[in-house]
Design a protein around this nucleic acid. Structure first.
Lengths: 160, 160
DNA sequence: GCTGTGCTTGATATAATGTAACAGAGCGAG
DNA sequence: CTCGCTCTGTTACATTATATCAAGCACAGC
């Protein structure tokens, strides 16, 4: 992984790293990374895009892992709750967390051309948001930061 | 209006100000602030909360202004396109813009207790987001910033 | 005044996204 | 071995959003 997140990288490392991190995390807390849950996480790790719940359902269903919407939504709930996956609100879609394990305030860069999603990070104690909240006497529980635009790859060669 | 946005204020001024601003804007550009569109804007101005499209539809329908979903969605599209209304993605709901007319990068403070929504503002040239985007070579088109938490009124008296 | 053009609305149907609720399966603790 | 827990299977439904085509309406130009 590099600084920007849009560069080429050894993606098999991305996947296996995140999977083993998830396995470790679950083992430590006696959570069950069941076949459905694991498979959904794998699917989302497969590339840095956001998949809709029904896209995911279509795949796991074709693999005999459950064919009804609740199966997909339950797996996603689990993965989101434990921080393995984030929901991209403005797409109604889900993407694997690329910083598993850490507490974080993610900010997503979403390319409107190739639909790549990169998870960046803000320092919550540094930003304007925190200032604004403080000034307003507002206690922050959760931040959703989603930035749409054109990624460096698509500036050069649209829809890479 | 004050700095934080959660204080009491003369809300009739809020409403009439935003409405006349919208009227002026439309007159200048020969846009049509038709009865449905105007009424939807009014509804959203009525209080600083986010309303779902079907909440809005229920009201306008009861007033004889159109009873099918596309009526509400079209009015909302118009209002969003021209910046009179913003969509709150994590609620699938809509709220009136309280800074009509200005180009802006809004950040929403959403109280999970009373569901109030306050529109704050970031300086896009100042924040971490801009830095992150620059570093990644990412061209920003649109930002979605939604902060959930507890507003100052609800800290004192829950669910005010 | 007519007429054509473009935008707005009306209306039907359907797609996409998300949940409630309950029954059954599997597994570990006692 | 059985109780209790979590996870899964399944049915049914709720909510959010859009595609499509027909009809109205206003204004520009003739």
């Amino acid at each position: 992984m590099s600084q920007s997140g849009f560069e080429h990288h050894d993606h098999t490392v991305c996947i296996s790293g995140a999977l083993t991190a998830a396995e470790t995390y679950c083992r430590e807390r006696k959570l069950k990374l069941t076949p459905v849950r694991r498979r959904v996480l794998e699917l989302l790790l497969n590339d840095h895009k956001a998949l809709g719940a029904y896209d995911i359902l279509a795949v796991i269903s074709s693999e005999g892992l459950g064919s009804q919407p609740p199966v997909a939504y339950r797996a996603l709930d689990f993965l989101v709750t434990h921080g393995f996956v984030h929901k991209i609100e403005n797409r109604n879609a889900y993407t694997a967390c690329t910083h598993s394990g850490n507490e974080h305030t993610p900010a997503f860069l979403i390319c409107t051309s190739c639909e790549s999603v990169v998870e960046a990070h803000t320092d919550p104690t540094q930003g304007q948001i925190d200032q604004i909240a403080k000034q307003a006497g507002f206690t922050v529980q959760k931040s959703t930061i989603e930035i749409e635009g054109i990624c460096p790859n698509c500036v050069e060669t649209p829809a890479a």
